[in-house]
Simulated scan of single mutants.
Amino acid sequence: MTLVSGVRVVAGDRVIDNGFVRVEGDRIAEVGEHSGSPTGGTAVPGFVDIHVHGGGGATFTTGDAGEARKAAAYHLAHGTTSMLASLVTSPPELMLSATEAFAPLVGEGVLAGIHFEGPYLSQARCGAQNPAHLRHPSTDELEALIAAGEGAVRLVTVAPELPGALDAIRLLVERGVVAAIGHTDATYEETLAGVEAGATVGTHVFNGMRPPHHRQPGPVFALLGAAGVVCEFVADGIHLHDGTLAFAATVTGPARAALITDAMAAAGMPDGTYELGGQAVTVAGGVARLARDGAIAGSTLTMDQAFRRAVGAGLSLVDAARMASSTPAGAIGLAGEVGALRPGLRADLVLLDEDLGVQRVMRAGAWVAGSAS
């Protein structure tokens, strides 16, 4: 039994100013008011990142299992207790081999699943995706990837305006895979057709999509306004202005807003030259951009930084915690397992100091060595 007590506990829709979390084995057994003196600090649910390409100098995008373990360990030390390994637009053979390599890591619990960000994306809005490997949606390719993953494939991003995209979205939903809309030049109507087909996530909304206009609202307004869609936001002050983040989260509410990192290998590393999907990326001042054209190429963000940024933008602790944990967990079908400090769920929590920096991380009832602020 482990007792975390005397701390402020962010539990669902409330904050317990002097609370406790009792852990039995790998599960949360009880959450309540602490009768003793407070010790300081804040306990929040373990963060859930559904869109991350790497970190700590390692990448998910090459399909190397050793690299994946290193990247996952880096983000775990920053409080991310559940994460999807996000792959970028790649040749078919790399996508398949990466799926086969990562499926055992999902079985072990190192990863919560695999996310394909591409290759079924808009040429005009591909951003840092490699245009050489973009292609139209293929249900045959998706069937092969899903089969190879044996349940590991959880999320696929698709541009809904492409030929065959709606059929691909329907197939994903039928196979129990979450379909996301992103890297798209779709109209408002084309976006809503994707939602109607079954898409339930918006990939880093505002970024990699046609910008909104009051006469041509495009995908941004469609996704923000769609009641069944969870919208991802990269809260680093680079992808989105803090005012945009606060406004968008007000539109969606915390139940439909998910903080993500979109982090690449350079997260936690010095400025320099890195690689993403076969393309050179230059990192300067912590900002990652493609060497060839200066397009933003993911981020160097961690989820604890995103959480602090959201609070700094004016969101409450409760709302920021939901956006960093329970909402993304629910978006990929894990709400009954992780994402909240609630009895019965896996004992994943992050202890934060007065400045919301990471003090300690617990995953499945065990403290993680090397937790970092």
Rank of each mutant, 00 (worst) to 15 (best):
S82K: 00
G113F: 05
A246N: 09
L352I: 05
T2Y: 00
R210I: 02
S37W: 02
H34Q: 03
M303P: 00
A288V: 02
P217V: 04
A266D: 11
A85P: 08
T2R: 15
L315R: 02
H133R: 00
L334D: 03
A291V: 14
R215V: 02
H204S: 14
H204L: 13
A324C: 13
A297V: 12
P119Y: 09
E108H: 14
Y188P: 13
H75A: 02
A68G: 06
F60W: 05
T39K: 14
G286D: 11
G127I: 11
V9M: 12
V156W: 08
M1K: 07
P38F: 06
A222Y: 08
P219A: 11
T61S: 09
L142N: 08
V368E: 12
P137T: 09
L240I: 12
T62F: 00
G278S: 10
A132S: 12
A331H: 02
L276S: 05
D353F: 11
M362W: 15
R14I: 07
H214R: 10
A193F: 03
T184E: 08
D293A: 10
V338W: 00
L142A: 09
E24T: 11
I260C: 09
G336L: 00
P92Q: 10
A306L: 11
V88C: 12
G63R: 04
D26T: 15
V177A: 03
V31Q: 03
F20Q: 09
A265K: 03
F20G: 06
S86A: 15
G182E: 08
L166G: 13
G268P: 11
L3C: 09
G19R: 03
